[in-house]
Design a protein around this nucleic acid. Structure first.
Lengths: 337, 337
DNA sequence: ATTCTATTCCAAAACGTTTTGGAAGTCAAG
DNA sequence: CTTGACTTCCAAAACGTTTTGGAATAGAAT
């Protein structure tokens, strides 16, 4: 049998009210009674029924996170790193994480609506913002607290943490052109993703800067997986005049591109330069280690989580918009021509 | 304002009872009324308050998953793959996942107790079973539904899915000895983990089988990360008579070992053989691609999830104990001496 | 003796839903 | 015009907690 307040009340001879208030350390309960109630509660192994508590208190101490899946899964180490950051910070702050996966579309919207209306969670963490992000408008209309990892195209006002992808790609391409590369391919993410926009913008701007023609900077869209990177890289490498460098917009695709190059007998970092973006833990240990842009994914997760909790608790945010500069990590996968 | 049953009742002129029953498609409500109620409910954007529902119904449609963290994070791609499998299957079955991270110890136990007593979740998925696993006894004592990924040492009876690590390692070592290796190092997981036990057992048994002395089969314990694998592999490689093959007990450590070997100018797959266990998505794309044991992590996640849901719903399990045979994938990281 | 203040307690309402145990109405059969 | 069966509805209780708005007691001040 599950122990409830009534059981403690019966055991101590006090009322339910008193027991409740004793457990919550109200000061209209005598120290003696508190001690007694706490003792008995411990003995009986009491812990409160969460739903009853939440029904009454009108908040859940739970944060929602719906991972957008393209394809059947979300096993991108990027997400696991982010989730780790969110989860651990949330645990510290006394919050739980309710995780779901939903492909972008109607199902996804229903999931959000149900969570909001049904008061399942106190707030949402939004990841992988999209150009026209219905999630954002939905949450704003509902006046529901959320923090996004990523910006949105429309000049909507909402708190976010994001990395400066444009800046990052510029630094990266400068690194490549400094090494003498004049023909640089790009493995881009699906264009509806906001971060694709920023990274691509950086890529393009820095080409203009370096005086490289568009024709010498082929851009292929991949699905962010190794396989996608591999497939697109094959196309680049097998073209009439293949590039001497490939800038992938995430590490996973960079790994795929490395496989494609190595399969063709090329030595990555010598015969061809390949770079990534994200610096997932794997990047340091690939062979050769991957030149990439580091963004502190784990810390970002924690940061987003923290902001959301503040928002929920009605505290003011010190910074509503956080834009982090990714740091270029030059490893052995890039070299001079 | 949040829409509740009362609002629909007022709008339709029906009672709360009737509205509730109409929405739940009871057959003591006329079709007309049902249609009306559903229409109004949709118009008002109603969706039920989850806590109230759960308080009443006594179940949560939520599965609990507390990831044991050694160190501050759990960004092992293994977990993200597993979580993906669990999450997607759960979504199909109409369940949510409540994810927490907790380091093994008292905090962890408190988290379990609170979730059980507080009826937060309908059941638990247990991962990374340990030799003396207090979580199992706790859940059994509380008579709380759970399914484990992994077995336990004591002959406790509980439903689980596991891979046959002993068998896997045997197949693997046979592969290595067939290639002529006579000195094989092993990177083992922390011994309190149950899967360490099974994999190590397989390792040891197959050495006896092949007539290899213990002194020619050094076993070093690593923390399952690349870094850990790197560090321990360094010790092996820098020893007086280094092994010609290293069998790491998970892929991540194998990657670390590959870095260590490559750092020393060795060609992995030629100068030294390195193998993993798990076949995380990365394994196929490392350089060289990793010889490893494939276990269908994603599918296991789904399977565990499915079993737990059946258990919760009181259905009989077709198979209470599932033991899968990992499949040896020979890639280029292993070669003859 | 009366009033006031402080302390300690508690009955009842509230949170939003589902379920219980009928009630009311309609229709057909007797 | 009764009776029974069926359909459609609903008031009230229940789930377990917190909060509200006092009540009861004791001691101090008048």
């Amino acid at each position: 049998m599950v122990v409830k307040l009534k059981d403690i009340a019966d055991a101590t001879g006090k009322s339910i009210t008193t027991v409740s208030r004793a457990l919550n350390d109200y000061d209209d309960v005598s120290e003696e009674t508190k001690a007694l109630v706490n003792k008995i509660a411990k003995e009986l192994g009491y812990s409160p029924n969460t739903w009853a508590q939440r029904l009454q208190k009108q908040h859940t101490d739970t944060l929602g996170l719906i991972l957008p899946t393209f394809g059947p899964r979300f096993s991108d180490p990027f997400f696991s790193e982010l989730l780790a950051g969110i989860g651990n910070r949330a645990a510290q702050l006394g919050y739980d994480i309710l995780v779901s996966t939903r492909a972008p579309g109607e199902e996804e919207e229903i999931a959000y609506r149900a969570a909001i209306q049904g008061k399942r969670v106190d707030g949402f963490i939004l990841v992988r913002t999209r150009r026209q992000d219905e999630r954002i408008t939905l949450l704003q209309e509902s006046d529901f607290p959320f923090v996004a990892f990523g910006r949105a195209e429309e000049k909507l006002d909402f708190p976010f943490v994001d990395e400066d992808g444009t800046h990052g790609m510029k630094v990266l391409v400068r690194h490549l052109t400094a090494l003498g590369h004049k023909k640089i391919g790009c493995l881009a993410p699906p264009p509806e993703l906001m971060f694709a926009h920023y990274r691509l913008q950086g890529f393009k701007e820095s080409l203009t800067e370096a005086g490289i023609q568009e024709s010498d900077a082929p851009i292929l869209v991949g699905d962010l997986t190794q396989r996608g990177g591999y497939e697109q890289a094959c196309k680049l490498l097998d073209s009439a005049s293949p590039p001497t460098a490939i800038a992938a917009c995430n590490d996973l695709m960079a790994f795929g591109a490395m496989s494609a190059a190595q399969e063709r007998g090329m030595v990555v970092g010598k015969d061809i330069s390949i770079t990534g973006f994200d610096d997932i833990p794997m990047a340091e240990y690939s062979h050769p280690p991957l030149t990439t842009l580091h963004q502190p994914i784990y810390e970002i997760g924690g940061r987003v989580c923290e902001m959301l909790v503040k928002l929920i608790q009605g505290e003011a945010l010190k910074e509503r918009y956080v834009l982090l500069k990714p740091e270029l990590l030059v490893r052995q996968s890039s070299g001079s021509v």
